Simulated scan of single mutants.
Amino acid sequence: MNERILLMRLKHKSERALTEVIERYTAYVTTIIREILNDKATAEDVEELVADTFIALWTTAERIDYIHYSSLKAYIGMIARNKAKDFLRTHKNINLELYDDVLVIDDGVEKKILQKEQQQYIKDLLNRLKPEDRKIFLLYYYQYIKIDEIASIMQMNPQTVKTRLRRGRETLRILLSDEENIAYEDKD
């Protein structure tokens, strides 16, 4: 059964479709959650998050626009990734390091090498931000600290933190654009 049909059947609350999805994607979901949590959770936590992923799929199935989400695997991967990050958020003493933020698409060696290269590329881009802006960016996006808390840590106004986050995103967007332009010129 193809993914689009599975999505339609899930939308109509087919338990048989859910069973097939669980059988087909349990290993994939488990891999994503383990990659994100690394050694920051027990095996029981991972199992619970896997189950929570499929429960979330089931409870939101009627809202899925199966025409736009033709890839069930990508949709489930997104749910799994969010569940793992939510786990990290609720366990305040656990931080997601920059190199832990990986969405596993494939278990192939080539894919993992590409992911590591992308992580290094992101690290290099972040290192080009002003130190204070980089710290705010990492606190917000990788340690899940709220803006008010960052403002307290950095001894800034919360609006200043928001402005620096916005400017940081814009700077990264410009850096990415410049990199793309250089790569494009190199091809000529």
Rank of each mutant, 00 (worst) to 15 (best):
I150D: 11
L114D: 14
T19N: 09
Y69T: 10
T171F: 07
Q159H: 13
I94L: 14
N82Q: 10
I33Y: 00
Q155L: 08
Q155M: 08
K92T: 14
D178R: 15
I113C: 03
S152W: 08
H12A: 05
L7V: 04
L7Y: 03
V21L: 04
I67R: 13
L129E: 09
L126T: 00
V29Y: 00
R128G: 10
I67S: 07
S71V: 02
L138R: 05
L57P: 03
E132V: 13
V21W: 02
Y141R: 04
T30N: 06
V109D: 12
N38Q: 12
L125C: 06
L125M: 10
P158D: 01
E62D: 12
Y141K: 04
L114I: 15
I182D: 14
L7E: 02
Q120T: 08
R169M: 12
D133P: 00
E20S: 03
L126M: 05
I5F: 05
Q115W: 06
D101L: 10
K73N: 06
E97A: 14
R9K: 07
I79V: 06
Y75E: 08
V102L: 11
K135C: 08
I79S: 00
D39M: 03
M156P: 04
M78Q: 15
V104C: 01
K130N: 13
Q118V: 02
N38T: 10
I5D: 13
E185D: 12
L138Y: 09
D148H: 06
T171R: 15
S177K: 15
V109Y: 12
V161L: 02
D188A: 15
Q120M: 06
P131I: 02
A17G: 00
N38G: 06
L72M: 01
K112F: 05
I113H: 04
S14F: 00
L139G: 11
E3A: 04
E23V: 07
R128K: 15
L7W: 02
Q120F: 04
K11P: 00
D186C: 12
M78T: 14
K146V: 11
E3Q: 13
R134Q: 10
K85V: 10
A183V: 12
I76C: 08
R34H: 07
L88W: 01
I105R: 12
K92C: 08
I150A: 09
H68W: 11
V46D: 05
E47G: 09
L138F: 10
I64C: 09
E47I: 00
A80K: 01
R63S: 11
L176V: 10
S152T: 13
E179F: 11
E23T: 09
D124L: 05
I182F: 14
L172C: 05
K73R: 15
D106G: 01
Y144C: 04
K83C: 01
M1I: 03
K85C: 05
I153Q: 09
W58S: 04
G108E: 12
T60I: 04
E35V: 04
D148K: 11
R134P: 00
Y66T: 14
L10R: 00
T42L: 06
D107N: 11
Q155W: 02
D148I: 01
T19S: 10
